[in-house]
């Protein structure tokens, strides 16, 4: 109906407007963290390595001697114009780091999220439906233990089993050197690039590299998904409309699948969005474990090399990614749940 789409548009616009303060708060947070907090990054990075006069020169060059308000303005200008400068260590434009390594992170996180949902949703539904049976106990146990496992430790076990002993899967990097060399960067997402150029022969190699990191990270996140889906199903099964559906003589299977599961999945969208923080944090560790050339891996590299320009750019991009994800989630919610857009 016309009015429905009208209210949907209004909802989306309102939601977009709410993004503005969040972006500012996150950017301010990053700024405060890197510039205002005790021990500015230049001292943190180079203190002890350089003489005080050299440090002062560095600070001047980076604009750190200007008043904070001016620095803040310059930082915001950088963000909105997309000029993050070039890295100190290897003279790469920060935007290039973001585009290339960010694409690898995107590929990993999307694949991991798919694994997490594919494992977590059915398991959580089973557990919620068969509550207090051994299936439930098993699923809950899986959820708790898998979540308790650090992603890098699972990665280590996977490498031991599938890499070292069985030799089935490569234990590091995103593609074999040969494949990497032959692919043309269009999107920087290697799987897509291979498809765009029709290099189908490279895809098995790319997938083989992707499987272990994605499954490892996905499993850890599935622990959270299992628990949430289970609780939601239990909750939904208590819904008034469930009893009403039974009173109309629907088959129990239809009641569960059509009413309980469907309603249980609506909050999952939101919750999946909230797992973005977990996903991105896990990605940093996974990238480090599997030497996956993602943005988290780069962040650690630049941190170790005390390249604060690169660090600032990468952290800013993470902040913007968080906002984008929360926006996306709300849009999906509006599409799934008719009540939201009303």
């Amino acid at each position: 109906m016309a009015s429905t789409s009208g209210s949907l548009r209004r909802y989306l616009l309102t939601r977009l407007a709410l993004v503005v303060p969040m972006v500012f708060i996150l950017l301010t947070m990053v700024f405060v963290l890197l510039r205002v907090a005790p021990g500015n990054p230049i001292v943190a990075a180079l203190g002890g390595h350089l003489s005080p006069s050299q440090l002062a020169a560095r600070e001047r060059a980076a604009g750190y001697d200007k008043p904070l308000v001016v620095q803040y303005g310059e930082y915001l200008r950088q963000v909105f114009t997309g000029h993050f400068g070039t890295t100190l260590t290897d003279q790469r434009p920060v935007t290039q780091v973001i585009a290339q390594n960010g694409a690898a992170t995107l590929e990993l996180t999307v694949a991991a999220m798919l694994v997490a949902l594919a494992v977590g949703i059915p398991l959580g539904m089973l557990a919620g439906r068969l509550r207090d049976t051994w299936v439930d106990a098993g699923a809950r146990g899986f959820g708790i233990v898998i979540y308790a496992a650090p992603v890098f430790f699972l990665g280590l076990l996977a490498q031991l089993v599938f890499g070292t002993y069985l030799g089935w899967l490569p234990t590091s990097s995103q593609a074999s050197v040969l494949v990497q060399a032959t692919l043309q960067p269009h999107t920087n997402i290697l799987l897509l690039d291979a498809m765009i150029d029709g290099q189908w022969g490279d895809i098995p190699n790319l997938l083989a590299h992707l499987v272990m990191p994605a499954v490892t990270l996905g499993l850890v996140i599935s622990g959270v998904v299992v628990r949430l889906v289970r609780v939601n199903v239990i909750q939904a099964m208590k819904g008034d409309y469930i009893e009403a559906a039974r009173a109309r003589g629907l088959r129990e299977r239809d009641v569960v699948v059509r009413h309980a599961f469907k309603n249980a999945l609506v909050p999952i969208v939101t919750v999946t969005g909230l797992q973005a923080a977990l996903l991105l944090s896990g990605a940093v560790l996974t990238e480090e474990t599997f030497n996956w050339p993602g943005i988290g891996n780069e962040l650690i590299y630049y941190l170790e090399n005390r390249d604060y320009i690169a660090v600032q750019g990468i952290i800013t991009v993470f902040a913007l990614a968080v906002v984008a994800i929360s926006l996306l989630i709300d849009f999906i919610n509006a599409w799934v749940d008719p009540r939201v857009r009303y």
């Binding site: 969040m22 996150l26 947070m29 963290l33 890197l34 907090a37 005790p38 021990g39 990054p41 001292v43 943190a44 990075a45 203190g47 909230l274 973005a276 923080a277 977990l278 991105l280 944090s281 896990g282 940093v284 560790l285 988290g296 962040l299 650690i300 941190l303 660090v311 952290i315 993470f318 902040a319 968080v322 906002v323 929360s326």
Partner: peptide
């Protein structure tokens, strides 16, 4: 909303320096 580990990394890194 911010990836908790990144936040912790940056803070720990800065504190470690000072």
């Amino acid at each position: 909303a911010f990836p908790y580990l990144l936040l912790a990394i940056v803070i720990a890194f800065l504190l470690q320096g000072s």
